[in-house]
């Protein structure tokens, strides 16, 4: 393998995992330092499976996983000191208070940052002495995040951290993630099916569909190269034939199609047309919804 690039926090190469009815196929992603990657997929697309495979909570069939250049699972202990993971089922013990949870957990990590923990508890007003079972869903998520960040990891792996939360708590969580990457040396990979959360704060967008990565790309260039193209009137027949357009449809006022190479389309297109940018949500639905049905 080549030397580890200091700027890459997480590298996943050729990750494969087969189940009877589902397959994670040849996953390749990289999370650079100082960035947030949003990992988008529909329910059941393979988001949690990939997250768990990275943490070696499920055994992969093939592939290479490196965190800060260290490989999983061979250097698991060292890797886990650098990673804060919050899975789809919180690992908090419902019968314990946050106080007890934290004083228990701190013994396992040499880099435990009690000051940051206190600051975050204060900021999010997470009750210290109530049992976890008595906390609201939002509080539980915040408590898990505080716990995951307490040992000063370089990388946060968060499985659907914002799903099921009200808009205020969701915003707080997103702010916490933006906070986390402030010093440019840390990074976040968070999965979600809430496209607006990803569109808001992610630098990189990775979309998984049916176990396969459709793309993993910086958000600005992604949203830049896709356009909805509207060709008014009935003179659009010719333009619609170009291989640069897909999902073309006749509408009352003309033709509508999509392009994923807008710069190219601009150069070759003639006649009357106009373009519209897509939101990440529109793009996501276009690429993962109802294909072939």
């Amino acid at each position: 393998m080549n030397n580890h690039d200091e700027r890459t926090l997480l590298e996943v190469n050729g990750l494969t995992k087969s189940y009877l009815d589902f397959q994670l196929r040849d996953v390749n992603i990289q999370v650079p330092a100082g960035t947030i990657m949003g990992f988008l997929g529909r329910n059941g697309a393979g988001k949690s499976t990939m997250m768990k495979a990275i943490m070696d909570l499920i055994k992969r069939d093939e592939g290479d996983i490196r965190v800060l250049g260290m490989s999983m699972p061979e250097e698991e202990v060292a890797v886990k000191e650098q990673v804060g993971y919050v899975g789809d089922t919180p690992l908090l013990n419902n019968a314990w208070t946050m106080e007890r949870t934290l004083s228990f957990a701190r013994h396992f990590y040499p880099n435990w940052d009690q000051e940051a923990v206190d600051r975050n508890l204060e900021r999010f007003q997470v009750p210290f002495d109530k049992k976890i079972s008595e906390l609201s869903k939002g509080m539980k998520v915040k408590a898990s995040l505080i716990l995951a960040m307490a040992h000063q990891p370089k990388l946060l792996l968060l499985d659907e951290p914002t799903s099921g939360l009200d808009p205020v708590v969701r915003t707080e969580v997103l702010e916490l993630l933006l906070d986390f990457v402030q010093d440019e040396s840390r990074g976040v990979l968070f999965s979600s099916h809430i496209t607006s959360d990803v569109e808001k704060i992610a630098d990189w967008v990775t979309v998984i569909n049916d176990g396969e990565i459709l793309f993993s790309e910086d958000k600005e260039s992604l949203l830049d190269r896709y356009r909805r193209i509207v060709i008014p009137g009935n003179g659009g027949g010719k333009a619609v034939e170009t291989p640069l357009l897909f999902n073309c449809q006749s509408t009352m006022g003309g033709y509508v199609g999509y392009t994923d190479r807008f710069d190219r389309f601009q150069k070759v297109a003639s006649g009357k047309w106009r373009s519209e940018r897509l939101t990440l949500e529109e793009l996501f639905v276009l690429l993962t919804g109802r294909k072939g049905e």
């Binding site: 702010e175 933006l178 402030q182 808001k200 704060i201 600005e220």
Partner: peptide, 17 residues
């Protein structure tokens, strides 16, 4: 870039652009 990204609740890559 990071400071403004946090203040505006916008990704860093958007501010960078």
């Amino acid at each position: 870039i990071r400071e403004l990204s946090k203040e505006l609740m916008t990704s860093g890559i958007t501010i960078r652009r």
